[in-house]
């Protein structure tokens, strides 16, 4: 019997939806390991988030709740969670591969002398051995590993497991944050303007490249993103246009940017350098619009249109807007 801890991410009292994806993966593992799933959340004012977790299908919820945890502190959260992993006698710990997950889970793993594997797309438990599959070389290859040390700690790629939709009523236990200094403290969280959809959580990513000729022409990309309606689509960019200073690095898709796998990826004026393809080739459906019929992007695209983006994209935007309005 091996229990599984799922670390839930709560920001400003709100449970991040992707945490329910980690619950799904946790329940999958628990079924194989014969253990229970314990959700652990850190923060201040966790009642609503804990109640939501209690419904998700987990067996127990632990809320480490107190004013010193109002803002994220990687070191302090890690110590609190490591204590809960020990208390739960858990042999696997899961969290989503978000900015917080990447920062927090490796520390938990280190404090417990466990194994760690990140950005995982599949987890397994076979005869008591935990394992995972993850993209490496920005998705140019896939590595399958087995854990040799417990606890097995894994961060899960977002948008890859279905969100748990339980109707459970797990016990919620509340505990105060452990005493001790906070070595690093978040002083401020500055929301990006316009409530942008995070690139890796978007259902549709529309990326622009050098084919757009200048920074101002990204308006075409932004208009198409807007046509999908609020909270659906996000702007992406090729490395070339980020390096040219047209777009911020947080929008870069590819090997030195973000790896995305949305249901729909639209590449506009992107030729498809190997580093870019690595960052989007796992999208379910890929559309490419490019004036060069021989561009490598067409080799990975499901659907391509050859021609002038300045004519094609506005027509596409209009058609999408009509469909969205008709829904």
């Amino acid at each position: 019997m091996s229990n599984i801890v799922v670390i839930a991410e709560v920001r400003g009292g709100q449970l991040k939806r992707t945490s329910l994806e980690a619950v799904t993966a946790g329940l999958q593992l628990a079924q194989k390991s014969g253990g229970k799933v314990i959700a652990v959340a850190c923060g201040a004012g966790l009642d609503a988030a804990a109640a939501e977790l209690a419904k998700s299908g987990v067996h127990k919820v632990v809320a480490v709740d107190g004013p010193t945890f109002a803002n994220y502190s990687g070191d302090a959260y890690a110590r609190a969670i490591a204590e809960q992993v020990k208390a739960a006698a858990a042999t696997a710990v899961l969290m989503v591969h978000t900015a917080m997950g990447k920062d927090l889970l490796p520390r938990v793993s280190a404090l417990l002398e466990g194994s760690v594997v990140t950005d995982v797309v599949e987890v397994s438990c076979d005869g008591g051995t935990f394992g995972a599959r993850k993209p490496v070389f920005a998705g140019k290859a896939t590595m399958t590993v087995n854990a040799k040390k417990a606890p097995f700690c894994a961060t899960l790629r977002p948008n890859n497991f279905a969100a748990a939709e339980g109707s459970g009523s797990a016990e919620v236990s509340k505990t105060a944050p452990p005493a001790g200094d906070l070595l690093s403290v978040v002083k401020e969280v500055i929301a990006s303007s316009g409530g942008r959809t995070p690139l890796q959580e978007a259902k549709v990513v529309v990326s622009g490249g050098r084919g757009l000729k200048e920074a101002a022409h990204f308006k075409l990309v932004e208009d198409l993103v807007a046509a999908f309606g609020p909270g659906v689509a996000a702007v992406g960019a090729s490395r070339a246009v980020v390096d040219a200073g047209w777009r911020p690095h947080r929008e870069q898709v590819g090997q030195t940017g973000k790896v995305v796998s949305p249901p729909l990826y639209i590449a506009i004026g992107i030729s498809g350098a190997i580093q870019h393809l690595a960052g989007m080739r796992t999208a379910r459906t890929i559309v490419a619009i490019n004036k060069d019929a021989d561009a490598p992007i067409f080799k990975v695209a499901d659907y391509g249109i050859v021609g002038d983006a300045f004519e094609i994209v506005p027509a596409l935007t209009k058609a999408i807007a009509e469909i969205v309005a008709g829904k």
Binding site: A99, S184, I190, S192
Partner: peptide, 9 residues
């Protein structure tokens, strides 16, 4: 971070 920027000391 997702949709925001964190300032940490």
């Amino acid at each position: 971070i997702e949709g925001a920027r964190e300032v940490v000391t």
